[in-house]
Write a protein that binds this DNA or RNA. Structure first.
Lengths: 157, 157
DNA sequence: ATTATAAACAGAATAATATTCTTAGAATAA
DNA sequence: TTATTCTAAGAATATTATTCTGTTTATAAT
């Protein structure tokens, strides 16, 4: 059996998914504990895989990547080997930050972050449409983003 | 004028968006520098807003949130005040981790992370459909995720 | 109930790292 | 050339992470 999370664990996770640079002491103070049990719990959460990694979130626009686009894709063939190949190819495109196999009106939904419309068109023409078995492609250009977070809802635990 | 990034800055950003727990020394070694200039550059990147925050990325499924869903939404009214109200409401829903205003077949595209299909249905029935002016709602249920990262493409700089 | 066993914790000690400081070397502009 | 600014190196210091030891608390078996 796996490890099961208690209240304190979820509080720690909640804090770290907001700001992973908090010191152990500051977290311990907030929870009314000392540093050692908090430290041990964090290490356990990392080891057990509840925490996958620690990352810096960059400002896309400030860095020059001003456009987010979602692309709904339909494939013409659906053999297992072909689906796998499609995902493998997609993984090599750095402008694609998400690729989901979905049920509904599309087979795949991609999320891209690119410089601008030209960069997007370049992706479509010289990368995406070169993939075989590609069927319908529908783009959703992001005009503005009202919410975008990594914080998942831990209140259910 | 803003600050402009050089090669070393983008290398630092690239490293930190993969793993923000790297020590200054380990980054400095990789770049063939000493810790102080690397430290100062990181502080500058934070201060100038290129780095927005440092976060822990959690394992959704392991925590019990096994389902990712995208929802394409059409509104019946498009006045400014109504669009703003819609986004405000959406921001109060913890299961919604992204909300994008898009052009194309929908007005908004949402990304949700929830426990399971029941939790998703509960969101639709007791939260989403209570919003006024709601038009068409189309769900894309994620079957599997082939790629999901925070790493944006810095090679363009 | 009671004893054995394992977890979880507190508090102190130590090790590693971040942060600051001082100085020197390059680049830049007058 | 000569200030002037920027960037870096290296050492000194301050914080913080990490380890360690002993104690308490919970847990489970008898």
């Amino acid at each position: 059996m796996g490890y099961s999370l208690d209240k304190i664990d979820t509080q720690i996770l909640s804090i770290l998914q907001k700001n992973s640079n908090r010191t152990t002491k500051s977290i311990a103070d907030e929870l009314g504990m000392t540093t050692s049990p908090v430290f041990e719990r964090i290490k356990k959460l990392e080891k057990e895989g509840y925490i996958k990694k620690y990352v810096a979130i960059l400002d896309n626009k400030k860095i020059g990547l001003k456009l987010t686009v979602f692309i709904g894709i339909t494939l013409q063939g659906h053999t297992r080997s072909y689906l796998e190949k499609f995902v493998t190819e997609i993984n090599n495109f750095p402008e694609v930050i998400e690729c989901h196999r979905v049920s509904g009106n599309f087979d795949y939904l991609l999320k891209l972050v690119v410089e601008d419309i030209e960069a997007y068109e370049h992706f479509i023409i010289s990368k995406l449409t070169l993939l075989p078995y590609l069927g319908n492609v529908q783009s959703l250009i992001t005009l503005s983003t009202g919410k975008e977070t990594n914080e998942i809802d831990l209140s259910i635990i």
